[in-house]
Amino acid sequence: MACPDPSRGVYLTYLIQALILLSVAYSLTAGEYFLGFSAGIAFLLTLVPSLMTRNMRLCLPWEVNLFIAVSLYLHVMGHVGGYYVLFAPYYDKLTHLVSSVTVALLAFFAAVLAEHQGDIRLTRAAIVIFILTFTLAAGAAWEIYEFTFDQTLGTDLQHGNTDTMVDLIVDLIGAVIVAIFAAIALAREERVQFIRLFADPSSNPGRGDVGGDPADPAEER
């Protein structure tokens, strides 16, 4: 499919990916092979959105790719650069905020895609609730992961109940930010045009233009 020409902002994503690769090289040369491996996995994860959307008739906005890259880079540098300890506890909360915004944007993208590609009809309230619940579920899963590693491998990822609860509150704040953005964006008259920014319009030719079928529930909300 032919997506619109990307904005110059896409080069910011390339820059972040290059910095992650530098983290990989630094970790390996310093003999920190596990950190190098983890940073390498993070770099590969930054490539997943492009690989998944390339042959799926989708156009993921470059801003979403940038958020994914930044959230992974912050996590990598938290360990490689020791920022989790050096700037504790603020750096950890920053990574949670950026990561939760990223997850919430992906949830928004998934909801928009489901409505555009299939027969699902979602109200604006349903999309907002989905963003909130999906992001909080992802945050809870991350806390379970940290707890499991601490209990089985003796790591020190969690620092008590207060730390865990503050992390989840920060996750909720990130979800609320995106939910508000989604509610405002979907309330605009250009709702259908906005939705089609995420996908190739030719992928669903049965759907009319914005001024097409007035009985379309997506346009009545």
Score class of each variant (00 low, 15 high):
L47H: 07
L35P: 00
D5I: 12
V176S: 10
G139N: 03
L94P: 00
T123D: 06
L22N: 01
A107E: 06
V101S: 02
R196Q: 13
Y90V: 05
T148I: 04
N65Q: 11
L15M: 12
A218F: 08
T133C: 10
T102P: 03
A111G: 14
V10E: 12
Q193C: 07
A125I: 12
Y14W: 10
I127S: 01
I68M: 08
Q158F: 07
N55H: 11
I180R: 01
A137L: 15
N204V: 14
R8S: 15
S99Q: 06
G154I: 07
V10A: 10
A125V: 15
R207F: 10
L66Q: 09
F198S: 02
Q151T: 09
L45E: 01
F149Q: 12
L15T: 15
Y26K: 11
L35F: 11
D150E: 08
R196T: 02
E190I: 04
L105D: 01
L97A: 11
V166G: 01
V64Q: 05
L122C: 00
R196H: 04
Q158A: 07
W62I: 14
E63G: 09
W142D: 11
D92K: 08
Q17M: 13
D200L: 11
F149M: 14
L122I: 00
L21S: 03
L19A: 09
R207I: 09
G118H: 01
V70W: 07
V103M: 06
V101K: 01
S99F: 03
S38I: 11
A137K: 04
A126F: 00
N65E: 14
N55K: 12
I184R: 14
I184P: 01
K93A: 08
R124N: 13
P4F: 02
T53Q: 04
L44R: 04
M52C: 10
S100C: 06
D119W: 00
S7A: 12
T152L: 13
G208M: 07
V76R: 00
M52S: 10
N161M: 14
T135E: 01
N161T: 14
I129P: 00
H116I: 09
P89R: 03
L21I: 12
G139W: 00
L72V: 10
A179S: 06
Y91L: 06
S27Q: 03
S27L: 08
L136W: 07
D163V: 03
D5N: 13
S7P: 06
A30K: 05
A137V: 09
A88F: 10
T123V: 05
P6S: 01
G81E: 09
P49C: 05
S7I: 03
V48A: 15
F67R: 04
G154F: 07
M77K: 11
D200K: 05
W62C: 08
D156Y: 14
G208E: 14
L153K: 10
K93M: 13
P201A: 05
N65R: 12
G78V: 10
D216T: 01
F147W: 12
A104S: 12
G154K: 06
V101L: 12
F198W: 12
